[in-house]
Computed example of a mutant assay.
Amino acid sequence: MEEILRLFPEGIRQAVHYRIKDRWKTMQEIRFRLNQPVELIFDDHTEWIETIKPDRKESIFVLNQLSEFSLYRMEDELREGYVTIEGGHRVGLSGKVNTLHGAVKAIQHIAFFNIRIAKQKIGCALPIIPYLYTDNYQNTLFIGAPQTGKTTLIRDVARLISTGWRDVTAQKVGIIDERSEIGGSKKGIPQHNLGLRTDVMDACPKAEGMMMMIRSMSPEVLIVDEIGSENDVQALMEAINTGVTVICTIHGRTLEELKKRPSLKPLFDYNVFQRIVLLDRQNHPGNIHRIFNQKEENILQKTGCFKNEVDWSASFHRHNNINRV
């Protein structure tokens, strides 16, 4: 995790490294706040480094590391409120907002940093991939609140679809990775394993990227993270009308909650999604709560499986405890 540790001044770097040690696999976030202890958020608990309280000088060090000493290069990211670094880790930023004509121009006097740890969990989508395939892959929506494992799941879904599983032939996959979180690309090259037949449009706005990918790379399955705007929905509808299967994620807690959002109304009016996967955390990220078909019937089978943990083996035998991501 050198790409994360390098963000911190030497003293904080050593303290964070010493505290985490070999527990990076269970790390979710590192919260770095001015004049407050550093917060370490693991899968099942939170710890504080009480002896470390970053000051303004140390926050400037982090900003310089993020921007490679050029805040001008981060202009777009500062408007969005986050920066994606090597490995697909996302650093959220908060502070005093600078506006122009009522729109956010940038965040100034940044005093709060949230480093979200990107994880690749090979095999985590094995238990659910059969639900997404019936003669062909189904248009699928993953619903979950933040930190429920949506991105981790669709990353592995992409790998499985583009490599093949059981006797299902590999298909061409196109990923629109607007936030560079799915592939964790560096200079356009994914750092995560996305499979053999996957092409990535990195750091590209979703609405524009979907049609660009269809025109240029002719994918059979299109994967997009965190849809929500009217432009995203319109682009999804256009993509589906070209015959491409779409698999995407969205922030939300329930299906009923999403149906109340005006921007998403066309998706539900036209029954775009043949599968809807609802995630929740319970005591850890990645619980598959329900899987709905197009009639909104729950088709998830929980007999003898889907309990607490993922079965990380390459086998397709189902054991207890295989739905954790």
Results as ranks from 00 to 15, higher is better:
166 R>P: 01
194 L>Q: 12
177 D>S: 07
192 H>D: 13
163 T>Q: 11
179 R>F: 02
202 D>Q: 10
179 R>Y: 02
158 A>W: 00
163 T>A: 00
162 S>K: 05
189 I>M: 08
170 A>M: 07
152 T>L: 09
187 K>I: 00
183 G>Q: 11
184 G>V: 13
192 H>M: 15
190 P>I: 06
193 N>R: 12
204 C>H: 11
176 I>H: 13
181 E>Y: 00
157 V>C: 01
178 E>I: 00
183 G>C: 06
192 H>N: 15
180 S>N: 13
184 G>Y: 03
152 T>I: 11
170 A>I: 05
147 Q>G: 08
184 G>K: 10
173 V>Y: 05
196 L>A: 13
160 L>I: 01
155 R>D: 07
171 Q>F: 02
195 G>I: 01
165 W>D: 04
186 K>G: 00
147 Q>Y: 11
169 T>R: 15
208 E>L: 08
183 G>H: 05
161 I>H: 10
189 I>D: 03
147 Q>T: 11
162 S>Y: 13
147 Q>S: 15
202 D>M: 08
196 L>Q: 14
198 T>W: 04
179 R>T: 01
203 A>L: 09
150 K>M: 05
164 G>Q: 12
153 L>Q: 06
203 A>I: 01
176 I>S: 12
163 T>C: 03
199 D>S: 14
184 G>S: 14
173 V>H: 09
168 V>Q: 10
167 D>C: 01
187 K>R: 10
174 G>A: 06
157 V>H: 01
170 A>P: 14
165 W>L: 01
177 D>R: 05
173 V>L: 13
193 N>S: 15
198 T>I: 05
161 I>S: 06
209 G>N: 11
156 D>T: 05
164 G>L: 06
191 Q>Y: 10
200 V>E: 04
195 G>K: 00
149 G>M: 10
189 I>Y: 07
201 M>P: 00
206 K>Q: 06
196 L>V: 11
158 A>V: 03
169 T>K: 15
173 V>N: 09
193 N>Q: 15
158 A>I: 06
163 T>E: 08
182 I>F: 09
161 I>T: 08
193 N>K: 14
168 V>P: 00
167 D>V: 01
205 P>M: 14
150 K>F: 08
194 L>T: 08
151 T>M: 07
171 Q>R: 15
148 T>Y: 02
151 T>C: 06
150 K>D: 09
173 V>A: 08
167 D>M: 04
150 K>R: 14
176 I>R: 10
153 L>Y: 12
178 E>L: 10
162 S>N: 08
179 R>K: 07
188 G>Q: 05
162 S>P: 02
175 I>F: 09
166 R>D: 15
150 K>C: 10
153 L>V: 04
171 Q>E: 15
204 C>A: 14
186 K>P: 00
194 L>W: 11
193 N>F: 15
170 A>N: 10
166 R>T: 14
164 G>W: 03
157 V>E: 07
207 A>W: 04
199 D>T: 13
198 T>S: 04
155 R>M: 03
200 V>W: 04
167 D>S: 10
156 D>N: 12
168 V>S: 00
159 R>Q: 02
162 S>C: 07
162 S>W: 13
161 I>R: 06
209 G>M: 11
159 R>M: 03
166 R>C: 11
148 T>E: 13
